[in-house]
């Protein structure tokens, strides 16, 4: 059984002017011990998907489909059960550590909070566990007494990771955990995440707009476009979908002469979710689109070794 299984998950936001389909029929699974990356441009629905996993979405969002966490249907859970599952089985590290840290509480108390709420530790044990966790994320123990504003961005992100680890969950969902950080600090945090998934029995679902970060860290990748997964496959393989290919080309490899003085982009703009193009949502920007692409919507289909892609050309020579 997969640790996490999404089956045809959709999320729609109700707006004054209509409905916004943010996630459209996503199916995806993650095995125990696996690291899966979800990549896509801003607005493609990544954060909405992450929040849907633990039902952290705002009230105006409607979820459909099925989300199985360790075999248990998340959408059918009572609030009490959901509270128990959050932190203890799966926890989320959010983008840029903006959310999540309370400015008026010491960070030690914030890390201990899920332990105490879930009655997993006495106050004394919690204190020891906090010291252990801080050490694990590379912060000195005395930092437990600090307030969030006394820490740098990189240190706050470490605290968020310590919080996520506190109850020893089996799944960590990390939503752009390094996006607001500087290159070297980003490398420090990525090293930490890499160590965590290598040593502990922790699975990772990592979300980023930066393909290069994910390709390096994850076993498998899912590419999102306009609320859909348009490709899945091993992180070290070659993409099939024309969108994934364009995304990969946008991150040059230094030393690769074909990208020297030749930046590669993609014409057109990301689609407006309120006016999605017909057929394959990518067709207006697609360099190899066929006539049928504007009318026929394509589901994920086999596209090589452990790879699926939602493109008419998938499985054929592109």
């Amino acid at each position: 059984m997969s640790l996490l299984e999404l089956d045809d998950v959709s999320v729609t936001y109700k707006l004054a002017g209509g409905e916004l389909p943010a996630v459209r029929g996503v199916s995806l699974s993650l095995e125990a011990g696996e690291a899966v990356g979800v990549v896509g441009e801003s607005g493609s629905g990544k954060s909405t998907l992450a929040m849907a996993l633990l039902r952290l979405l705002p009230r105006d969002a409607r979820i459909s489909g099925r989300i199985l966490l360790d075999g248990e249907d998340v959408l059918a859970m009572s609030w009490g059960r959901l509270r128990a599952v959050r932190w203890a089985q799966a926890s989320i590290v959010f983008q840029g550590a903006q959310h999540g840290l309370n400015p008026v509480h010491r960070i030690g108390d914030q890390i201990a909070e899920p332990l105490l709420i879930h009655k997993l530790a006495s106050p004394d044990q919690a204190r020891r566990r906090v010291a252990e966790l801080l050490d694990q994320v590379g912060l000195p123990g005395w930092r437990a007494k600090s307030y969030p504003h006394e820490l740098s961005g990189g240190q706050r992100q470490r605290v968020m990771i310590a919080m996520a680890l506190a109850c020893e969950p089996r799944l960590i969902v990390a939503d752009e955990p390094t996006t607001a950080l500087d290159v070297m600090v980003q490398a420090q945090v990525l090293t930490l995440i890499r160590e965590l998934i290598a040593t502990d029995d922790i699975s990772l679902l990592m979300i980023s707009h930066d393909l290069s970060v994910l390709a390096d860290l994850c076993d498998r990748l899912a590419v999102m476009y306009a609320g859909r997964v348009v490709e899945t496959g091993p992180a070290d393989g070659t993409f099939t979908h024309p969108y994934s290919r364009a995304l990969a080309a946008a991150f040059p490899t230094i030393g690769d002469l074909s990208s020297r003085l030749a930046p590669k982009g993609l014409g057109g703009d990301p689609p407006d979710p309120l006016q999605l193009p017909s057929g394959c949502a990518f067709h207006p920007r697609c360099p190899v689109a066929l006539d049928t692409c504007s009318t026929v919507s394509i589901e994920l289909r086999p596209a090589g070794e452990r790879r699926t892609a939602a493109c008419v050309l998938a499985g054929e020579a592109v």
Partner: peptide, 29 residues
Amino acid sequence: LDASVRGEILALLLRLRNELGLSALVVTH
């Protein structure tokens, strides 16, 4: 900017140099 759009803007800066002879200092991380 998003990755796919980034390349287009960079290509524009490069084209301005090639076509108009503009010089540029680009600050970046």
